[in-house]
Structure formats: structure tokens, C-alpha cells
Design a protein around this nucleic acid. Structure first.
Length: 506
RNA sequence: GCCCCCAUCGUCCAGCGGCCUAGGACACCGGCCUUUCACGCCGGCGACACGGGUUCGAAUCCCGUUGGGGGUACCA
């Protein structure tokens, strides 16, 4: 067959990678890591990322899952050049819409004799192995490879419809894996496999390489779980090259597993696998991208906090480590915390708002005053949180009406010998501070002098009762800054409230 | 069973024949700073699975053992 080079034909040295998930369930971190590495590889080499959806399994695929996939990619900033939503020269990009394309390829494969009809049932195959004294579990034995027309007619007369199998070459199959080096599968260890069901529908085994070929994919970076199906794909590629559908066999790179605790692969049910759970808890995409990159790859010998841009600058598939990686929530959280600290204040305070709303600290509509308070409080909490979801707990007291402030039991303990006296003194000092200079530094100066110097109480005990009164907590953002944000009337009201409560209890 | 992959601190990553008395990060344990908590800083604990080769020299190369994992579908 003669192929007319398409106008859109890409330069032969262009790197073209793809991400091709099945839309089943919620996005899984292992899958997202695969998307990320493909993206980083494409961007590093100035190539293209193609985003295709493998929805050939109507029973398991869902539209909801498809939208979650888009959401996940966008959240993490993994953009694609061709594919669903954006289109491209090789569409459509959902396999459910490509049936005609596959039928055309199947016809050519049949004509060229690369695939043949097979009537053997699983039972018949194992029966033959048993009869030959072999393990009945053994795979397909090539029984139908050279069926005569008479034999085929006889099967059809029984009402049997054939599957179609690819004729595997009787040679070793070797390829150089981008992450693992040279890998050889011995001749005869991969049986002829089914590419078309008896009902005429193509299987993943056919459709995946066909689309990669048609989309001119140059590098296939995918999970280690399909490493063993690579020889089948290479054999199919050769057949596709022969019939003019493929230009070449792409390079393969098999990324290590992402594991949970112990030696279990992260299962879909595992909460650690659910990308959106990380987002709900307050992971920022920068932190997530950073952490995910560390699952099988390293930025440098002594740094592991980096930006998306830095990832792109350094990432190559060849540097990916072949051994499985385990998800470590603590490390992920620590990395996220670093990225939160790296955020400009204004950016962070904007990101905090949805979490404050979710935590009930802010309502559905946020007033300009509330927004201003969030901004002002942001520097107080930036080094104190690991996850954005901690914001309501950390900042809630600033948004609570004085009369609604709950002083936690914990905050009532270890307040020193005479917290009431401390509070009394603090109240009179604070009353004397003019409203216009009600800011952290003067407040600290005045209170320190009165309580620490004058009353001779150690700072630790001197400010404990005030902290409890102001924040309701034993642990809180810095005291004087908090008082400044609350303002004079509110600060005084809270100090008085705790004084009264403790005095009554005495 | 057969085929394939993997093997450095508890975990992740660095190391790709001499720079290694093995480096960084998280976690953990001390300490400093300090109005609490964090941040930051200083220090500590802690690994080349085992056995053979090759080499002047091996965490690095080869073989084997052991231990993990995956595949062996008319799923993807």
C-alpha cells in the first residue's frame, strides 16, 4: 500500500507521547503519576502529549469518570496538545468512536494473513494440554493456525463463530526499555493472542497499538503491569508496519508500580490512591506534582522540592528508577507544606477561602471584610500548616463572634498560679492602649512590661491565659498579631469573658 | 508450572568501577531560637539481601541463591 504523506505529518524527530486511561472509577495516584511522567517527558523534549480515552469496555466505563479525568489533569496543570476536548489531526480521541477505523485495520490484517480465525474454546485448549501430559493451565497452543477451509466450514456448521488471533513470530523478541534496558522474551513463550472477539469487536490488545500507530506515538511510557504484554504489541506493530498502518515500533518505558503499605499494589479502594482525597485535604497541585514525581524519580542528589518548570527541565524517562515506590503520606504532606510556604501570600489567602467555607468558618458568600481578614491572617498561618484543610481549625477563632468563642478544656489547664490576676492586669493595660496604635508590637511591649517585668511571671505563663482567652486554644497563631486582627473591643471582650469565668469558678 | 521485572537507611531519592569511612529528604530522637505551636538552625539514629566471580580496585559489571512483584483472559 502506498501512503500519501499527510500535510499534518509531524517531523520524524518529534517526541509524541500519550496518556490513554480507561474511564473507570476515580483518578488513581498511580495513573496520575503516569500522566505526569508522560507530560514531563513531552515538555522536556519539546514534544507533544496526546490524551486519548480507552473506553472500549462499556460495562465498566462511565461518563462521570471521564469528567473526573479531565478535572484531575486540569487541577495538576497537565496540559495536552492533541486529544479529547482539544481535538487534533488523528481524532476522534475516544475509542468508542473509532469502531470504523478498527474494522478497516482488521480487514487488512486478515487479508495479509497476520491474524487467523480460531475456534478453540478454553476447555478444548486445556483438554489438549492434559492429553499431551502438560499443564492444563498452559496458554493457547496454536491449534487453529493452519485450519483448512473444510475444517472451518465444519466449525461454522456447528454454529461456532471464530475469534481472531495474531500469528506470533517464532523468534525471541527483544526491545530496549527506556527505564530497564534490554529485555528479551524467549521465542514460544507468548502464545498467539486474541485481537478480535467472536462478535467482531476488537480487543484492547489490538486497539491500543493501532491507535498509538495511527497517532504516531514515539514513546510509550506506561505502568510496569503491562510489561509482559510488550512482546505481543511488538509483534502486532510489525504486522501493522507490514500493512502500512504503522511507521515504526515505538520505544517503550515501563514505570515502576506505586505501592501502598508493605508489598501491596495501591488498590483502587485504598484511600491513599484517590487523587481527589488529597485535594480535599488541602494538597496544593504544586505539592502533589512534586511528590508524585518523586515516586520513581529524583530531582537531584540533595534537593527534593521543585517546581513544575524545574521538573520539566530535568525529567527524562531514562532517569526513572525501575523499582516499585511506596506512597508515604507523611513525606507527601511535608512536601506540600513546603509548597504552601513558597506561595505568595495573596495567592495562598485566595486558596484558603474554599477550605474555610468548607469548614464552616465562612459562609457561601464572603464579604470584603472577611476577605480582608483572611488576607491579613494568612502570614500568621502560612508556616503553621501542612494542608490547606487545616485552615478552619487554625483561623476559626478570628471569625467567631466573641460570645460564641468556645474555650477548649485543654486551654484551661496549666495557666499558672493566678490567671485571674494576669487577666486583670492585661485588661487594664489593653484598655489603656489607644485604638489607633492597637498593633502587635506596642501590645507586646505593654503586656510584656506589665506582666513579665512587673508581675515577674515567666513569659510562658504570662501569656498562656491571654492566648486561651483570645483564641480559645492552648496552641494558636501568634498572640499579639491575633489581638491586632481582632481589634480592641473584641480582644477586651474575650479577656474579660475568661477572667469572669475563672473568677466565678474559683 | 512457564515467562518477565525488581532488590541502597523504616520510606522515597542520589550513586551509573576509584570522589563512598555510601549523600539528601521524610519520619524519629536530642538541642538552639521562642509568647504557645510552627518555621528556621545544629546534631544524632539508620542501608548497599546473600554467595560466587571479573578487576589493581565493586553499592556500581557478570552468574547463582534468596526474597518480593507482575503476566500467563473473547479485562484494560
Amino acid at each position: 500500500m502506498t501512503t500519501t504523506p499527510a500535510q499534518t505529518s509531524a517531523p520524524t524527530d518529534e517526541v509524541r507521547v500519550r496518556f490513554c486511561p480507561s474511564p473507570t472509577g476515580t483518578p488513581h495516584v498511580g495513573m496520575v503519576r503516569t500522566a505526569l511522567f508522560n507530560w514531563a517527558h513531552a515538555r522536556h523534549h519539546g514534544g507533544k502529549l496526546i490524551f486519548r480515552i480507552e473506553d472500549t469496555d462499556a460495562a465498566r466505563d462511565s461518563e462521570e469518570s471521564y469528567h473526573q479525568l479531565l478535572d484531575a489533569m486540569r487541577w495538576l496543570g497537565i496540559d495536552w496538545d492533541e486529544g479529547v476536548e482539544v481535538g487534533g489531526p488523528d481524532g476522534p480521541y475516544r475509542q468508542s468512536q473509532r469502531a470504523d477505523i478498527y474494522q478497516g485495520v482488521i480487514a487488512k490484517l486478515k487479508d495479509a494473513g497476520h491474524i487467523y480465525e480460531s475456534y478453540s474454546t478454553a476447555e478444548e485448549i486445556s483438554a489438549r494440554h492434559r492429553a499431551a501430559g502438560g499443564d492444563p493451565q498452559l496458554g493457547y497452543d496454536g491449534f487453529d493456525r493452519d485450519l483448512t477451509d473444510e475444517q472451518k466450514s465444519a466449525y461454522r456448521a456447528e454454529g461456532r463463530e471464530p475469534t481472531w488471533r495474531l500469528r506470533m513470530p517464532d523468534t525471541d523478541l527483544t526491545f530496549t526499555d527506556l527505564v530497564r534496558g534490554e529485555i528479551t522474551f524467549k521465542a514460544g513463550t507468548t502464545p498467539d493472542f486474541v485481537v478480535v472477539r467472536a462478535n467482531g469487536q476488537p480487543l484492547y490488545t489490538l486497539v491500543n497499538p493501532v491507535d498509538d500507530a495511527l497517532m504516531r506515538i514515539t514513546h510509550v511510557l506506561r505502568g510496569e503491569d503491562i510489561l509482559s504484554s510488550t512482546p505481543r504489541q511488538i509483534a502486532l506493530y510489525r504486522a501493522l508496519i507490514d500493512i502500512g498502518v504503522a511507521e515504526r515500533v515505538p520505544e517503550f518505558g515501563h514505570l515502576p508500580y506505586v505501592m501502598g503499605e508493605g508489598n501491596k499494589k495501591l488498590s483502587k479502594r485504598d484511600p491513599q490512591a484517590d487523587l481527589f482525597l488529597y485535594r480535599e485535604q488541602g494538597f496544593v497541585p504544586e505539592g502533589m506534582v512534586n511528590y508524585l514525581s518523586l515516586l520513581g524519580w529524583g530531582y537531584s542528589a540533595d534537593e527534593d522540592i521543585f517546581s513544575r518548570q524545574q521538573l520539566v527541565e530535568r525529567f527524562t524517562a531514562e532517569d526513572v528508577n525501575p523499582n516499585p515506590a511506596r506512597v508515604d503520606i507523611k513525606k507527601a504532606t511535608a512536601i506540600n507544606a513546603d509548597h504552601i510556604r513558597l506561595l505568595p501570600e495573596a495567592d495562598l489567602s485566595e486558596r484558603l477561602i474554599p477550605y474555610l467555607q468548607h469548614g464552616g468558618v465562612l459562609g457561601e458568600t464572603v464579604t470584603p471584610e472577611q476577605r480582608a481578614l483572611v488576607s491579613a491572617a494568612t502570614p500568621l498561618v502560612q508556616t503553621r500548616m501542612n494542608l490547606l484543610g487545616e485552615a478552619p481549625d487554625l483561623m476559626g477563632f478570628l471569625f467567631t463572634a466573641d460570645e460564641d468563642l468556645v474555650v477548649q478544656d485543654d486551654a484551661l489547664k496549666k495557666l499558672g498560679d493566678d490567671p485571674v490576676a494576669v487577666l486583670e492586669r492585661a485588661i487594664s493595660e489593653v484598655e489603656a492602649v489607644p485604638t489607633e496604635s492597637f498593633t502587635a508590637a506596642p501590645l507586646e511591649g505593654v503586656l510584656r512590661e506589665a506582666i513579665v517585668e512587673d508581675l515577674g511571671i515567666k513569659p510562658r505563663l504570662a501569656f498562656g491565659p491571654l492566648r486561651s482567652a483570645i483564641s480559645g486554644r492552648r496552641i494558636s497563631p501568634p498572640l499579639f498579631e491575633s489581638m491586632e486582627l481582632l481589634g480592641k473591643p473584641s480582644s477586651l471582650a474575650r479577656l474579660r469573658a475568661l477572667r469572669d469565668r475563672l473568677a466565678t469558678a474559683r
